[in-house]
Amino acid sequence: MGGFLAWIGDPRIGRHLLRDEGEVVVDEVRHHWVSYLRPGFEGLVGLVLLVVSPFVHVNLAWAFLVAAFVLLLRGAWGVVREHRDRFVITNMRVFRVHGVLTQHLATMPLHRILDISVKKPLHGRVLGFGHFVFESAAQEQGLRDIRYVGRPDERDLAIQRVVQRSGLRGPRVPN
């Protein structure tokens, strides 16, 4: 069972790298723990319904069991979905891999990044997460909103450093 759980939980970032071109991972960003609260709560409610169901009238117990299994399944699916959703910063590009049964890969080369907005709602500032919004020259892009990023200011600086080191922005002018 450990092999299955490791397989289902690992999005295998390494297979998306251009190793023969010298691409290396600068940062692999997993979701902040806050993103697990909703699926965890659903699983907890499902567990409570499962425990309570033997004490309910037999004509109503089946509804409790069905609701419990649906909530447990939704909670487990949500946890795996959040765990497999990764945002990766490399020395050449940024990309996002997500999906459980089917996998979606969205890539943006560093030279296409025009602007990065970091949005930190009040509870995000308190708990240490934020959301990235990428702007590029493309009309349609699969890499626009990256939600629940832990330590967003550090991650933003890491992206800015990589872009600066790659020479895509002009040289720094000292004050």
Rank of each mutant, 00 (worst) to 15 (best):
V66G: 08
L114D: 08
I13H: 07
R155S: 14
M92H: 09
I8S: 04
F69R: 11
V24T: 13
S35L: 10
V149G: 05
I8F: 12
D145W: 14
L157G: 10
V51D: 09
R81G: 06
V79C: 01
H98E: 05
F95W: 02
V173C: 04
N91C: 06
L157T: 12
A76G: 07
R12L: 06
L18S: 11
L50C: 07
K119A: 15
G2Q: 15
H131V: 14
A76K: 00
G78H: 00
L17W: 09
G43A: 14
Q141E: 12
G124P: 09
A138S: 08
E21F: 13
R169V: 06
K119F: 12
V51I: 12
H83E: 12
V52A: 04
A61M: 06
G22K: 13
A61E: 05
V29K: 04
H98L: 02
V26W: 03
M92A: 04
L110S: 03
V45Y: 01
L73G: 07
T102N: 14
G130H: 14
V163S: 04
I13R: 02
V66S: 14
V149A: 08
R165M: 07
H131R: 15
M92N: 05
V80N: 02
T107G: 01
T107M: 08
L37N: 09
F4A: 12
R96C: 00
V58H: 15
H31S: 07
H98R: 05
T107L: 08
H131T: 07
F87W: 03
A61Q: 12
Q139M: 08
H32V: 11
Q139A: 07
V70Y: 03
G142R: 03
R165H: 06
N91K: 02
Q160L: 15
R74T: 06
H57P: 10
V118R: 10
V56M: 12
I116T: 04
F95V: 01
V88P: 01
E140T: 00
Q164P: 08
Q103H: 04
R15S: 13
R81A: 15
F134R: 04
L127R: 15
L50F: 07
D20T: 10
S136W: 01
G170H: 09
F132C: 04
V25K: 05
T107N: 06
G167E: 11
M108C: 02
V100F: 04
Y36C: 05
G99K: 06
H123V: 15
G142I: 05
G43Y: 02
R38Q: 09
A63M: 05
I13P: 07
M1E: 11
V48K: 10
H83Y: 08
H57K: 13
F95C: 01
T107C: 05
R155P: 07
H98W: 02
A68K: 02
V88W: 04
Q139F: 03
Y148D: 14
V52K: 02
D115R: 05
R144M: 03
D20N: 08
R93T: 00
V162Q: 00
R165E: 05
P39E: 10
I159W: 06
S136F: 02
W62R: 10
V70M: 04
D153C: 09
H131Q: 15
A76R: 00
L49Q: 02
L49N: 02
L65Y: 11
G22Y: 10
H123Q: 13
I146C: 00
V126S: 12
K120D: 10
D85I: 09
A106N: 00
L127A: 13
G124H: 15
A137H: 02
V80K: 08
T107R: 06
